[in-house]
Design a protein around this nucleic acid. Structure first.
Lengths: 362, 362
DNA sequence: TCATTTTTGAGGAACGTACCTCATAAATTG
DNA sequence: CAATTTATGAGGTACGTTCCTCAAAAATGA
């Protein structure tokens, strides 16, 4: 029986540091909170005492004393995409839990058709009343400028779900689209083992960075490892179920040798409806993105073979944690914030999140 | 622009509840902490005030006032299994983070060959100095009794990685082995599309519940959906690389129609070595469990096709969170504690965790 | 050396909750 | 109705930190 880690009876406090370093409590405080007016020599002495004692600041007490309440803002597009809806729910749930640690979240939706409205909303946010912003938006020039201005004002911002690499955002909470596309490519290739034919790709819009990167990753893998499969040009549905039904239906009718379908964006329900109408269920290997009620039911019934997903609960919690850390100017735990590219098939489908999750003061 | 959630200027405190309910602070305190000596009628009035104000107890302040420090104990088998090592590291890292919120972890290893030593260690733990226990152990009668006694003393216990369903453990932190086995089965079946032959199964020991359940799930799927594949009897290696090398080597030599290998437990390195020695790399579909340095490198080099994994970081953090919640008698967030059955292929292999993760007082 | 600036010390109030004591008010019992 | 039990109130201290003020000491410049 090997004790790997031993325990101190009582944790050292700021007073212990003061005594150990031979300085006053006030000086320790100045050092701990990086306040000015301390000689480098003294700073060093305090840090050495901290190291010697193994002091860890009690965050609970610190935040209590600060009596700081963190008001975060989340901005999501106001689309009826199931994924965005799920994410909104996850954010609300994460916020309910974070409420116990003085973190509040205002969840806002912006009309996706006009980025000026989003930009105007971002422009109104001030550091005094906003501790951080989580934003899900495509990286248009207008958005880019608005985000840059926001960060110029000192407000931390994390990109949610879709990255904004050229805005100087503090962090990206989400998965690498290119790797996600590669993953989809490998699954498509392997599930189609022994088959030869074409693969249909369906996206909302090929103007979205995510779709472009997924497609690129998918193509790379197919070309390199699965020469029997041929990826067709992407069909764009613009989020409209009827458009999907029509153009994908036409394409399927015109292309007899389709063996697989890769749904890059939303449209699980419309695709399932189309395949059902044409009596084509189970004829293709179908791979899609994101776990939603529709993709879940398609997985369960076997009409969808795999889903590449990011966990909305993790997204939401990670976004809040990162914003909180940024607000506290604390380092973030990279390992914990690393979102996984989840591969979901029928057999590892996580149980439907229960809605009867009541959280109240004990 | 729709504000989905609005914000109160200042959060209500216990004093606000007292005023709102028309009682004293002392009474509110009695109700909040379930102390005796309050009439049901008064309790109700306080609860109504709480609901009306939307009060959420400030956990930071509460724990500070309690000046409670949570001493958790984690018990892992002292094997040189890579997964256990990774988990130990993850636990230590999670503990470093949790230290900021008054949670300490003592990580102990017990000799896996004699459960009596583990049982004796558990018997020594007292509620006064132990806020909770995370235990990774097979469910033998000795362990079962020791865990029951521990819980009888009022110490919360979570099963880590491998469940202890008949001990009354408070929670299981890990993935469903049966579903994991089914997932492996589906991947094996689909990756072997068009092939006909036998699948070799390798386990450490078929006395371990996890291996039994994985095998059962795997068999179910193969029988139901992939009749061309035939799962052979499990080979047991007892964790010894040389045993694996010998018996798997013999079996492969004696069985020409093997198309797939399912590694139920540890042994990634030994299997890779064997296949390399016999020049058999890439000849079979190989599926295994857990992400370790060896399985990572096998995935990268293409000798391993997929890994079914549970995230050790999540395991560790979840265990600490659950124990903390149990110690506080707080409800746990099922959604957050739901471990995913991860499917890892080369393309969605998460980046190697960096070792230079320094956490210190800011 | 003296004047000036910089650095340090001592002390206290506050954050929101827990938990203690003692006194008093209210309800219950005989 | 008095005697007793039970419920409630008032007030305090403590937790570990932040952040403030004011005074004193030390270092720096001329």
């Amino acid at each position: 029986m090997v004790p790997v880690q031993v325990r101190r009876m009582t944790r050292p406090t700021v007073n212990d540091i003061a005594r150990e370093a031979g300085v006053s409590l006030a000086t320790v405080d100045r050092v701990l909170n990086a306040r000015p007016g301390v000689r480098p020599k003294t700073i060093l002495a305090v840090h050495q005492a901290i190291d010697r004692l193994g002091y860890v600041r009690d965050l609970a007490a610190a935040n209590l004393a600060r009596s700081r309440s963190y008001r975060m803002v989340a901005l999501l597009p106001d689309t009826d995409s199931q994924f965005v809806q799920t994410l909104a729910t996850a954010l609300t749930e994460a916020a309910a839990l974070a409420a116990a640690s003085r973190t509040e979240l205002e969840l806002l939706r912006y009309p996706p058709e006009d980025m000026h409205i989003l930009a105007a909303r971002l422009a109104r946010l001030q550091p005094e009343d906003t501790a951080g912003v989580a934003l899900m938006a495509p990286e248009t020039p207008i958005v880019r400028d608005a985000v840059r201005a926001l960060r110029g004002r000192g407000i931390p911002l994390v990109a949610l779900g879709s990255d904004l690499p050229n805005t100087g955002r503090d962090h990206f909470v989400g998965i690498d689209s290119h790797a996600a596309g590669r993953t989809a490519g490998v699954l498509m290739g392997r599930f189609c083992r022994g088959l030869k034919g074409r693969v249909l790709l369906i996206a909302d819009s090929m103007l979205l960075r995510d779709s472009i990167e997924r497609r690129r990753g998918f193509d790379e893998v197919l070309q390199a490892d699965f020469p029997d499969l041929d990826a067709m040009p992407t069909l764009e549905t613009h989020g409209a179920p009827d458009v999907l039904h029509r153009i994908v239906g036409d394409r399927l009718a015109a292309t007899p040798d389709v063996v697989g379908i890769y749904l890059l964006g939303s449209g699980h329900r419309a695709l399932a409806a189309l395949l059902r109408d044409r009596d084509l269920l189970g004829r293709f290997v179908v791979i899609g993105h994101e776990l939603t009620p529709h993709s879940r039911s398609a997985l369960r019934s076997g009409h969808l073979d795999a889903v590449i997903a990011q966990n909305p609960g993790h997204l939401a919690r990670s976004a809040l944690r990162v914003l909180r850390a940024k607000a506290d100017r604390q380092p973030i735990d990279e390992g914990q914030e690393q979102l996984r590219i989840e591969v979901v098939i029928r057999e590892n489908l996580p149980p439907e999140p229960a809605d009867d999750c009541h959280i109240r003061a004990a």
